[in-house]
Amino acid sequence: MKSKGLQNWERTRALGMARYVLVKGVLSYGLTMFIVMTFIVHRSDLSPRFIALSAVLWLIAGAVFGTFTWLFMERHYRRAVPKIIA
C-alpha cells in the first residue's frame, strides 16, 4: 500500500468493520447483485418466493464479500505499516 492508500484505509477502518461490511458488502455488492441477477438475468421467473430467496442469498453473499474484503485490506495494511514505521 502506498501512503495515500494507507490514509484512505485508516479513515475507513476508523468507522469500523460492521459499517464497512454493511455499506461495501451488503448494500453495494449484495443489493446490486440481487437487482441485476433477479430482475435482469432471471426476469422470466419472478415469483415472490424466488425474489425472497434471491434477496436472502445475495445479501448473505454481500456480507461474506464485505468481510473477506475487510480482512484482505487489513492484511495488506498490517504488512505495510511496519515498513513505514521502520
Results as ranks from 00 to 15, higher is better:
residue 47 S to E: 15
residue 49 R to D: 15
residue 61 A to Q: 00
residue 68 F to I: 15
residue 38 T to Q: 07
residue 43 R to Q: 13
residue 30 G to S: 05
residue 49 R to P: 11
residue 56 V to N: 13
residue 45 D to Y: 05
residue 85 I to D: 12
residue 4 K to G: 13
residue 49 R to N: 14
residue 67 T to S: 04
residue 52 A to D: 14
residue 72 F to G: 07
residue 57 L to F: 15
residue 63 A to E: 02
residue 10 E to F: 06
residue 7 Q to S: 14
residue 12 T to M: 00
residue 6 L to H: 05
residue 5 G to D: 05
residue 14 A to W: 01
residue 80 A to D: 02
residue 10 E to N: 10
residue 47 S to G: 15
residue 5 G to Q: 06
residue 31 L to K: 06
residue 21 V to S: 01
residue 84 I to S: 09
residue 36 V to L: 12
residue 7 Q to W: 13
residue 58 W to I: 15
residue 37 M to W: 03
residue 70 W to H: 01
residue 84 I to L: 09
residue 39 F to I: 10
residue 19 R to Q: 04
residue 28 S to H: 02
residue 36 V to C: 02
residue 82 P to L: 07
residue 26 V to W: 07
residue 33 M to S: 01
residue 64 V to A: 02
residue 69 T to K: 12
residue 49 R to W: 15
residue 36 V to R: 04
residue 47 S to K: 10
residue 50 F to A: 14
residue 3 S to A: 03
residue 62 G to H: 03
residue 32 T to M: 04
residue 19 R to W: 13
residue 9 W to Y: 08
residue 44 S to Q: 10
residue 37 M to H: 00
residue 20 Y to D: 05
residue 39 F to W: 03
residue 45 D to N: 09
residue 84 I to H: 01
residue 73 M to D: 04
residue 81 V to T: 06
residue 15 L to R: 05
residue 44 S to G: 04
residue 19 R to P: 05
residue 14 A to Y: 05
residue 16 G to L: 08
residue 36 V to Y: 07
residue 58 W to Y: 13
residue 30 G to I: 11
residue 9 W to M: 12
residue 62 G to P: 01
residue 48 P to E: 14
residue 13 R to C: 06
residue 63 A to S: 12
residue 47 S to H: 15
residue 28 S to I: 10
residue 49 R to G: 15
residue 69 T to M: 14
residue 22 L to S: 08
residue 8 N to Y: 03
residue 35 I to F: 03
residue 26 V to H: 01
residue 18 A to Y: 14
residue 83 K to I: 12
residue 68 F to S: 04
residue 15 L to E: 06
residue 37 M to R: 09
residue 65 F to K: 03
residue 59 L to H: 11
residue 8 N to M: 11
residue 4 K to I: 06
residue 45 D to R: 06
residue 78 R to L: 12
